[in-house]
Write a protein that binds this DNA or RNA. Sequence first.
DNA 1: CGGTATCGCTACAACTTGTTGCGAATTGGA
DNA 2: TCCAATTCGCAACAAGTTGTAGCGATACCG
Lengths: 191, 191
Amino acid sequence: MAGRPRDPDLEQRLLATAWSLLTSNGYDALTLTQVAAQSRAHRTDVYRRWRSKVRLVADVLDAYLPPVPDPDTGTLHGDLRAFAEDLAGAWNEPWNDGLVGFLADLRGDAEAERTFRALVVRRSQPLVDAIARAVRRGEIAEVPELPFVGNLLEGPLMHRRMFGGEPMTPEELDVVTWSVHRLLTGTSVKP
Amino acid sequence: MAGRPRDPDLEQRLLATAWSLLTSNGYDALTLTQVAAQSRAHRTDVYRRWRSKVRLVADVLDAYLPPVPDPDTGTLHGDLRAFAEDLAGAWNEPWNDGLVGFLADLRGDAEAERTFRALVVRRSQPLVDAIARAVRRGEIAEVPELPFVGNLLEGPLMHRRMFGGEPMTPEELDVVTWSVHRLLTGTSVKP
DNA sequence: CGGTATCGCTACAACTTGTTGCGAATTGGA
DNA sequence: TCCAATTCGCAACAAGTTGTAGCGATACCG
């Protein structure tokens, strides 16, 4: 009922190689031929495990992307500012540029999309926690749409990176942070 | 000193075909082979005019992307809301998904990047005008970093589309609009 | 008419993706 | 111990795309 077991080390080698190539050359320059070669394996070994490049990378990100640190600075604004800083740093990593190509490929593969979405949700947990702490401290009221806050915080950073070019200045990070902060504190939501 | 002149109609046919394929199938599915075939031309005709797919598409967008309408509703908030609605509609167009792939390819070609950047700047003019009108009306003070406002307004919409999936609800568009509006009116920038 | 550049067309090289096939190796079960 | 199942190592193939090269024919300028 069981044949030769899969070499678990081979799977790890492939993932590690893919992560290494991904972070050094970006998604677009990554080829499965390279991954196999640098793992002392064959392209067929890759295809036997992942149906396509995008699925491989989805699993690689799931396994290797460092977790988002939870700053817990004691104030909501301090936490938000730390997140903004962290996100800006991530989007300014040159290899992260290539992640855009990954997002594009993601559209063609529902399963890879699910994997990545789960990863995104997991990585938004520290932000959710920070907001929960602020609620407990009485800084802000309950926030109904948590994922939306992530859009507001990371969106401008991503947009700048993809349409604008130059990285954001600390002053601009301030503005983004305060804009989200004011939204959460509910100060003058409407005139 | 001059040879056979370039057929200007051929150039137009290629651009038109590329635009048609782009809007129906998206950037990733667009191949220069298709463009040539549907223009009753040859792939070499394309390569003689554009060095690569990304440069062709940059020119196609430059020529065919419809201009951003200037709402001029009479109030800053009305204008911002109209922009948000328009941008959200654009990002929800299925073919615009593929634009992500274009942005990815853009990283490898400095000239195409310049073309596209100029297009972006041109398309942000209505927003700049709307803000200028609000300044003239005395609604708000001068705004130093105009491009940044575009990041704040479009960023969340783009981010949602690329990481979140579901299109934004009208309520969420409200929040984005008010968040930018409050920033421009300068209400409680810092506590 | 001569020089020049484009056009229509074919062909080629290189690369990547994804598939197929087969003998050898390794494991669990009869 | 033998057998069935499954993976592994390896080679080969099909298909598609990108980008280049070459050539005769065509059209324009001086």
